[in-house]
Design a protein around this nucleic acid. Structure first.
Lengths: 245, 245
DNA sequence: GAGTGGTCTAGACCACTGA
DNA sequence: CAGTGGTCTAGACCACTCA
């Protein structure tokens, strides 16, 4: 009467997959209460240790949070910025009340051009939302953002006015995501970037391109350009290496 | 007779800490066979599930590898490059036999200057090894490396001749490490960098600074400069965010 | 107080694989 | 074939915390 052996996935892995798909599909949004271990034991007809193993793994991966007495809940995704911490070298007064302002420069809904399609990894002709904006901190340009949103994946974005809402924050709250890739490079500021960020042409800039997927559906692609040597990215690692592939 | 409750760490966490410290201290080098679950059960006087939880966690974190019948072994650290994958945009013929050459430009043992001390986070006056070198790929400069090694932590480095051996590889094989921090920024190539990498002055370069610790002992600090837009860094993430602090 | 997760036990069967 | 890890069970006590 031990280990019925579905000849497939281990039971704890199957349970984990079920819960994960409910979360990543959006059926269980952030904050949703996950059935208690007791309930899952009943549903899956297995021992509590088995359910516990699945839930512990989900908690370790950060997809859910667990509290005694209260229960387990779908976690709210961490902010994009914290994934790869971005620090402003100059204004280290960041902990304090740094005045922040978001400026939308351009907004357009269009059928994906060849360039858009390549960036977002969708088929040309798919409806996309293109947003250009500047982030200001302490009155000075902090970063230039150029973003594409896949309207097939995030239809609500079409009606959304991003004049005051940074699309990154909005997307994070609105959409679950399962995978992101960062591509980091150094570029010399061209005329347009120099003007936007109020820096000299040719200044070395850090360009971070981030692609976000929900399973295999591209959600958004964003290109963030940080002026010169005033910024850097920090990443902490332990021996295993946490990069995925 | 359940859960003797050491009133301290959970037992599985205590076991994990013990094993981890044996590995990170170097007492158990890469490849060392870890006692079997059965043996650990005897040593710690607990149930097999408990030691299994500790070992599974170590395996998940990548510190050990486990094989049926064979046993569990201390893992060989992954290469530094794979931690944050560095790709050469131009020479995507990397999979093939890319001719690689290492060129040591300068080598010096000295008492840490104030600058050294700040970079390595050791006290000024500590013996350090300073190495400057160029990595060539396909006959062209690929990256400039400027490294400090803490001789208090890695005494063997003093006698080592790095004319042909990249110190990064040597250190990886020689020393365990428990923590690394990457700092990534963009800089304009100054005259010296331009000369070393054979690029134009002012070209935007990606600068990666990596600090590596063994517990709280600084091991090495390295500054790698990649020429211009020919390189980028890739990082993959899942929602939890894998950066540490 | 009662429900929830945190941890633990003392077994068990199985699959894999090196000797 | 025997040792090892992989998985699972059916209980248990405890700590925490919300109502």
């Amino acid at each position: 009467m031990t280990a019925p052996a579905p000849k497939e996935l281990p039971r704890y892995a199957a349970i984990r997959r079920d819960l994960e798909s409910a979360i990543l599909s959006g059926r269980w949004p952030p904050g949703h209460k996950i059935p208690s271990e007791h309930a899952l034991v009943a549903r899956y007809g297995c021992a509590r240790m088995t359910v516990n193993k699945a839930l512990s793994a989900l908690a370790a991966s950060g997809l859910i949070v667990r509290h005694r007495r209260a229960g387990s809940f779908v976690a709210t995704p961490s902010t994009e910025e914290s994934i790869l911490e971005i620090h402003d070298i100059a204004g280290e007064a960041q902990g304090a009340g740094k005045p922040y302002r978001f400026e939308l420069r351009a907004r357009a809904v269009r059928k994906a051009t060849a360039t858009d399609a390549a960036r977002l990894q969708v088929k040309a002709g798919t409806a996309v939302l293109a947003l250009s904006s500047i982030h200001h901190v302490a009155g000075a340009p902090y970063a230039a953002e150029d973003r594409l949103v896949n309207l097939a994946g995030v239809p609500d974005a079409r009606a959304m006015d991003f004049s005051d809402t940074p699309p990154g924050s909005w997307l994070l709250e609105k959409m679950p995501w399962s995978r992101a890739r960062h591509r980091i490079s150094a570029i010399n500021a061209d005329a347009a970037i120099a003007r936007s960020l109020k820096i000299a042409r040719g200044t070395a800039c850090l360009m971070v391109e981030r692609e976000t997927w929900l399973q295999d559906l591209p959600i958004t692609q964003v290109r963030l350009i940080y002026p010169g040597e005033r910024h850097h990215l920090l990443a902490y690692f332990s021996p295993a290496g946490r990069s995925r592939r």
